[in-house]
Amino acid sequence: MGSEAHAPPARPRLGVFKLASCDGCQLTLIGCEDELLALSEKVDIAHFPEASSRTDVHGRFDVALVEGSVSAEWQREELLSIRERSKLLVTIGACATSGGVQALRNGKDVSEFVRAVYASPAYISTLDRSTPVSAHVSVDYELRGCPIDKHQLLEVLTALLVGRRPAIRDESVCMECKRRGNVCVLVAHGEPCLGPVVHAGCGALCPRFARGCYGCFGPKESPATAALAARLKELGVPAADLARRFRSISGGAPAFADEAAKQELEHD
């Protein structure tokens, strides 16, 4: 470095956006209680409506965190605009990454859904499918979870700021579960558990609480859904039940949707 004066580099601009979601993932950012104020010094949190009235609806961003799935036309348009204005787009959570729990509508007659919930269906405008962000724009990084894990969120933000690859493992929940020294609920209690095909990141919470994994983090890399389905059937889980297990929080992820469809066919 020479002695010439350098202006301090501009802080990277962060935007937090919401599509169809429960707000739990962006809440995870506010939930970084120990890091939030430090983070706000490192990055310019330029648009985060849940936390600040200072918004920048039309601005450009170095990193855009997008929560939620696309389930209405205006959300698609907003998403295209966010993509255009952002250097890096990171999806946060199962809704943005695989369509979320609301993707359970996919493949169903939505007008019937609207009638079921709303007194005056005429006012409702919605797309018949809830789709992940990647179905509409290119995504630079997908952070899994329902909700996302705060340590992983910080790791992604840090890695993007420092310029390295986020150290997020695409291994199974079993790896985390074993590292924690949990007793396997599937082997020791015959409890149906999706852990072997689910992406790690939650810290193997469900087995820690004596129940089987229900797939908040979506499929791991090369998930052996068919092998697991076969095994769970041996343990007495009926096809219809299996289909529901795969078609749940991350039911929109192709690997799970396909296995659910297979099981539904078998059931029918």
Binding site: A20, S21, C22, S71, V101, E112, V114, T126, S130, R244
Partner: peptide, 27 residues
């Protein structure tokens, strides 16, 4: 955007309901 919880809860096992309804709100 609407998320149709009441609609897609139909047909689910009652034991799944608390996991699913939790997703209505992150707070």
């Amino acid at each position: 955007a609407p998320r149709f919880f009441e609609a897609f809860l139909r047909g689910r096992s009652l034991f799944e309901v608390p996991d699913l309804t939790a997703r209505i709100c992150g707070i």
